[in-house]
Simulated assay, not measured.
Amino acid sequence: MTVFDARLRRRLADPLARGAKLIDVPWVTPDRLTAAGLATGLGSAAAAAGTLWALALVLWLVSRAFDGLDGPLARRRAAGSGSPAGGFFDITADFVVYGTTVVGVALGASRAQVAPWWPFLLVMLAYYINGTAFLAFSSIAERTGRRIDDGRSLSFLGGLAEGAETIAVHSLWLLVPGWAGGIAIAWAGVVALSAGQRIIAGFAALT
């Protein structure tokens, strides 16, 4: 993972653990937090498509807060490890939210005539290649006993584009939608480089 993402994860580990302790009541479950993150993420995409940029930003950040709490709560209840089903739901929800928010911003920006739609198509292509690389590695690494354990459900190969960077970039184009097209082109390049990095590192690790 990137230095920024790694540092942020370390800095947020204790606050998120304390947050998980505060919300550790029977009716709050990790899966419900994941579902709440998915719902607010979809709401952010819809708000962006409607050019409601401030609302989209708030819902995006709330969505990522839910996403940050589901793992610590799962590990707290499972004595250090989350459930496989919960991990699957979490990563699937993340992919849905990332993809739909890109589409939402593309629709809103083109509708408001502040940016064309095609830079966001490049982002989606880069996300597809990047996701394929790390999911394929995770599956094969698990099967061959070469799992990378950093506390998450999957074996993540490091890359330039990680969760913290994704949150920052998605927030940025909601803050300044007039620059969203240029931000999307640059971000697509970063994600593409990250995908290439993961492909090379994954092949080397499995050789």
Rank of each mutant, 00 (worst) to 15 (best):
T29I: 13
P116C: 09
G71M: 05
S63E: 08
G43E: 08
P15D: 11
A112I: 09
G178T: 11
W53S: 14
R143Q: 13
P26A: 10
G43C: 14
R143G: 14
A35T: 09
A195N: 02
D5K: 01
R75M: 11
R10V: 09
F4E: 06
G108K: 11
T40V: 05
V114K: 07
A65G: 07
L61K: 02
G151D: 06
G131L: 08
A36K: 02
R111Q: 09
E142L: 13
A46S: 06
G189W: 04
G87V: 00
R32P: 01
F4T: 05
W173I: 09
A54G: 11
A49N: 01
G181Q: 04
I167M: 06
D150T: 12
A186K: 07
E142D: 13
I140L: 14
S153R: 13
G181W: 10
V62E: 01
H170C: 10
D150L: 11
G196R: 11
R143H: 10
A36C: 03
A79D: 04
A93P: 04
G99V: 13
G50R: 15
A195K: 03
R146P: 02
G43H: 06
G104W: 15
V62S: 07
E142K: 14
T207N: 13
R147K: 15
G86F: 03
I183K: 09
Q197K: 10
P72N: 08
G181F: 12
A35M: 13
A168S: 00
F4D: 10
G145H: 04
D14Y: 14
A39S: 04
A39H: 02
L69N: 02
G80T: 00
R18H: 06
G196E: 02
G87S: 00
V105Q: 07
F120M: 11
D31N: 07
V102T: 10
A133H: 00
A141Y: 04
L59C: 01
I140V: 14
M1I: 06
S83Y: 02
I140C: 15
A109R: 08
A141N: 13
M124C: 15
V190H: 02
H170D: 05
A85K: 10
D150N: 13
D90F: 03
A136H: 10
I183V: 15
P15G: 12
A78W: 10
T40Q: 04
L38M: 12
A13Y: 14
G68F: 07
V105P: 08
V169P: 01
L174Q: 12
R11Q: 12
G131R: 07
A36L: 08
W60T: 00
P177A: 10
V191I: 12
G43P: 12
V28N: 02
V62K: 00
R7N: 03
W179M: 15
A164P: 00
G178P: 05
R152W: 13
T207W: 12
T34Q: 06
S81Q: 03
R152K: 15
A192L: 11
H170G: 09
K21T: 11
E165A: 05
A109Y: 12
P15Q: 12
P177K: 12
R10D: 13
W117N: 01
A126C: 06
L154G: 04
L172F: 07
G80C: 04
P26L: 08
